[in-house]
């Protein structure tokens, strides 16, 4: 089974995010860049499926050169090859533009299954994976916490508010990951050594038969970014006893904040 994982490199979730001087982007210098955590679940699931069913795992990404580090990490975990679309024209794309680029790149990569993160934890858009499925005219299931593949069919357990829904479809298909799907492995030292020799192709938009115009003019534009209203640290409730503190807290929540 040929599996493609869509991967994005993002600032780690431990990062403090600082707004850049242009007021519409964030500072990326000195920010630790990692595989998007939801994509890491996708890499792990793909490797497990390959171990169970055979086949290959290809990592596909759109990004800057630094993204090769994250692709190498995925290769060190056990993926077989990587493709990075690196093109300055891709940097102005919105989610649909990125999805069009990925879909165009997938014309040259055989796949039975595509796995993507439910969202990237930088822009939190929840769009790219689903849009790729639409452009490829294949079904998708999002926020999958468990999957089973038998006889060319995939059965996905999708998380919804208050529970799960089970859906089934034929391959080829795409699903997006939910936390809890698996516990991603660490790259082993032999894995890291092997990864250095695995193929990692860097392509431009022209290489995949696209130009900036075909990728589409962005229809969403960030006009400004700002910090959320700063929360003032409030009152530490003092009291002679735990009882007094608890009573004071309940009183203030009831009488002043009126939330209970």
């Amino acid at each position: 089974m040929n599996i493609v994982v869509l991967l994005k490199q993002v600032p780690s979730t431990e990062s403090f995010i600082e707004i850049a001087d242009d007021g519409v982007s964030i500072k990326t210098d000195n920010v630790k860049m990692v595989i998007n955590p939801y994509d890491e679940f996708a890499v792990e699931e793909a490797i497990r499926l390959k171990e169970a069913h055979g086949g290959s795992v290809t990592i596909l990404s759109v990004g800057r050169e630094k993204t090769t580090e994250s692709i190498r990490t995925a290769l060190a975990m056990g993926a077989d090859s990587g493709v990075l679309i690196q093109d300055s024209a891709a940097e102005g794309c919105d989610s649909l533009g990125i999805a069009r680029i990925l879909a165009a790149a997938l014309k040259d990569i055989p796949f039975d299954l595509i796995i993507a993160g439910q969202r990237a934890v930088d822009d939190d858009n929840f769009q790219v994976g689903v849009a790729v499925a639409e452009y490829l005219k294949i079904p998708h299931v999002s926020m999958v916490i468990k999957e089973e593949i038998t006889d060319g069919k995939i059965r996905c357990h999708r998380t919804v508010e208050g529970g799960t829904v089970i859906l089934e479809t034929s391959l080829p298909a795409l699903f997006t990951t939910q936390r809890g799907l698996n516990e991603p492995r660490y790259a082993s030292l032999p894995g890291i050594m092997k990864a250095k020799k695995k193929p990692l192709d860097i392509k431009t938009l022209a290489d995949i038969g696209l130009d900036a115009e075909k990728a589409g003019k962005p229809m969403t534009k960030i006009m400004a970014v700002k910090y959320p209203p700063e929360r003032e640290g409030g009152t530490i409730i003092d009291g002679d006893s735990a009882q007094a503190k608890a009573a004071a807290l309940v009183r203030v929540l009831h009488e002043k904040a009126k939330v209970i």
Partner: peptide
Amino acid sequence: IFSKADYGIVGDLFEIVPLVIDETKKI
């Protein structure tokens, strides 16, 4: 967490929360 909280109690949650429950029941 206290730098974001409107109201904080420094203490053992296993002691405080049951008391919060009792006080909430009273109101």
